[in-house]
Design a protein around this nucleic acid. Structure first.
Lengths: 239, 239
DNA sequence: CCAAAAGTGTTCCGAATACACCCATGG
DNA sequence: CCATGGGTGTATTCGGAACACTTTTGG
């Protein structure tokens, strides 16, 4: 039987993109019965790993339980293991009380993960919160979010991560908005299109945007196979 | 009292540069008395962490014990935590026998570290081995070395890591050789100089190379303070 | 004077930037 | 017919790549 390993955990910073805003998924910490300490603090989704479990699988398990989604993009980006990271003391008390485990020191492997907001089927107690304005979280979770965003900003410049956040059918404008939201800067739309439209794995659909009171935009999809085939010949995503 | 935490370790991939060759520091695994299994296998330097120890400090401790050096460049780059990474079985038997600890599963935080070969004052049983030809190591250490090199190749393009590997006084040619060794490709020396000579934190010394039977090269040093001051205005190390 | 590596400039090409107007639709 | 965002082209600048000869020293 698999048992919990109380020394190592995974925490997931789950990003989602909701028309113009980049968001993070946070969980309301469970209240402790008869305890004033509970407050409304929020935390990142995470779990202690199981004894016989791969680290990545543990992160996938966390995501699956929370969002109902499989096959999510997931990337390990940093470890947080300071011996006193489980502070302030109220947070630790809460953890011990709610987990029923004699937790002492937990080294946590942090992942960031990207999901399509539309697909997610959230369980209760979760909140999508704008990344640019995250409230105080338990433990070192604010630091973890900050580092996750930095990793995403770095890696979205060279990897096709944007398609994990966009819906299956998307417009070029949505794609540009996403880059702007993540990088925190404005991009010139002519130059942006000039750069990405030639990419061979970006496939225009028959379909156009509907029900908008202006010229409807062309819809595109991302072709994974063409990407894999062409990734070498392609200058890439250096935006 | 600080005790060992038998669930988490650090492993260090220590790189050194020795006229034209990039090398990794490996340790001869201690022989087990009366045991045929011992062999001559090599391993990476590493330690279980102490209970109350920062992860980085644990890595610094490993380096200090091994090389006598303080203030070494160190970077956490990935975690290896597969439940069956402590295989093959002979390696695990060796570990249990030699460490006297009921090790079961160990999640290891991998660091790469850069040192100036000349400064190091090595203890016994260590071997500098060329990176392009690493023999079979214990556990998953070959994978760890491979990933460390990839991380170094990525990060040396944007961070001033080369100065950690070069002697205090160095020539442009040495610097170029280092980049070539790490990136595994040849660089045009005129273009290389054109790119790096304008960097304001690269200070020419009065001194020149001596005792060479050709035109002696100018020696330079790296100025950390100027680097910190100018890093924003500088295009950087995009080689 | 010969061998060996240091050091130096120019041309060319492709990528990045800056910038302003017409188009298709819904209301 | 008007408001709204979609979609397009050109000129300029900057950085990267290719390329060969002269200089200084030791032997």
């Amino acid at each position: 039987m698999a048992t919990l390993n109380p020394h190592v955990s995974v925490d997931c910073v789950i990003f989602g993109f909701d028309s113009n805003k980049l968001k993070v998924l946070l969980i309301e910490r469970e209240k402790i019965a008869n305890n004033e300490l509970s407050g409304h603090k929020l935390k990142l989704p995470g779990n202690l790993i199981l004894d016989n479990e791969e680290l990545d699988d543990s992160a996938y398990r966390t995501l699956k339980e929370l969002t109902g989604l499989d096959n999510i993009f997931l990337k390990q980006f940093e470890v947080f293991g300071s011996p006193n990271r489980l502070s302030p003391i109220e947070d630790l008390i809460w953890l011990k009380t709610s987990s029923n485990i004699a937790v002492d020191r937990v080294v946590t492997i942090a992942y960031y993960s990207l999901i399509k907001l539309q697909d997610s089927n959230l369980t209760d107690k979760t909140i999508w919160h704008p990344v640019d304005n995250v409230p105080e979280l338990v433990f070192d979770h604010n630091t973890i979010v900050k580092k996750a965003l930095e990793a995403l900003q770095r890696e979205i410049r060279t990897e096709p991560l944007c398609f994990e956040l966009l819906p299956k059918k998307f417009t070029i404008r949505q794609m540009q908005n996403l880059y702007e939201a993540i990088l925190g800067e404005n991009l010139d739309n002519r130059n942006f299109r000039k750069k990405i439209m030639p990419l061979k794995f970006l496939i225009p659909l028959e379909e156009k945007e509907r029900g908008v009171s202006h010229k409807p935009a062309q819809l595109y999809k991302f072709d994974r196979k063409l990407y894999a085939r062409h990734r070498k010949e392609i200058s890439g995503f250096n935006l």
